[in-house]
Design a protein around this nucleic acid. Structure first.
Lengths: 153, 153
DNA sequence: CCTGAAATCTTACGTAA
DNA sequence: TTACGTAAGATTTCAGG
């Protein structure tokens, strides 16, 4: 799991996090490798799970997901069984695009992608059908200044 | 501007959000188009800004960014000038990978990618060098259950 | 470094809704 | 008109030898 990364690997990952549509030749030139050497490194990084995949970034407004909402919640129940059910419940809601267990005043943080208030409300209603929730607080994004920045290397 | 999406466009976007490494021929077969027709749609979606780009997904633990922290903060100042400075200040910190202006008890939500507590603390120290912050609350991710799910279509 | 295979890009034209 | 299909060819990129 601990695939040692050198500075060339980091440059490769940095570039690919920003734009994965470039050709291997371009990228190879930039990092000072032959196309073939780059190809071997890429395969190794993919095989090691460092690169988990390639995805298209879609404009939320273009697909009717302009409203981002962050939900913080505290639970009353803490049994293993309840937790498993709760996670399954949350995972089954496709508008939940991020799901973190956190420390502090709350137990979980969810990021929701909704179309508008009405569509968010239906997500909310579905969410709180789970019994055992103590507090559910919604923070609405007024503006997404940026998101999904590349991980710093 | 608002590029009307039909059912096939949605299927294309759905597939590409999950895996953008597939060949056009594969994708074309799946959605029931010729490779050529798919290519034309893709170019149109890219030109319209619906597809904003293609990125590699990198495993955070593999690049020493295992600690995710969510920072919520409230500000004391609200002048246009101060806001501009504040945003520039935040944007200049590469470990801040998400930045939202929100409603409610707090004004901003930040997502931080750090290596460990010590490296988070240096981000925190840098963050609070900005004068005019009233409250800065950190929520540490104990577990990332999932994140970066495709936008629901 | 070299190369065969594959994928992408481009043009052109005929067809269907 | 607008989008699709087929087809063919040029070019680029991939995946190795």
């Amino acid at each position: 799991m601990s695939h040692k990364l050198d500075h060339i690997d980091r440059r490769i990952l940095n570039a690919l996090q920003r734009d994965a549509s470039r050709s291997q030749r371009d990228l190879a030139d930039e990092v000072g490798l032959s196309q073939n050497a780059l190809w071997r490194r890429l395969k190794a990084l993919e095989a090691a799970g460092v690169v988990q995949g390639y995805t298209a970034r879609v404009a939320p407004e273009a697909v009717g997901a302009s409203l981002a909402v962050f939900v913080m919640l505290r639970t009353r129940r803490h049994s293993a069984d309840w937790l498993r059910q709760f996670r399954a419940h949350v995972e089954a809601i496709p508008q939940v695009i991020g799901f973190y267990r956190i420390s502090g005043d709350y137990d979980y943080l969810l990021k929701i992608a909704a179309g508008d208030m009405a569509s968010y409300d239906s997500v909310y209603q579905r969410l709180i059908q789970m019994e055992g929730l103590e507090t559910v607080t919604s923070y609405f994004a007024m503006e997404s200044i940026f998101d999904g920045r590349p991980l710093p290397l």
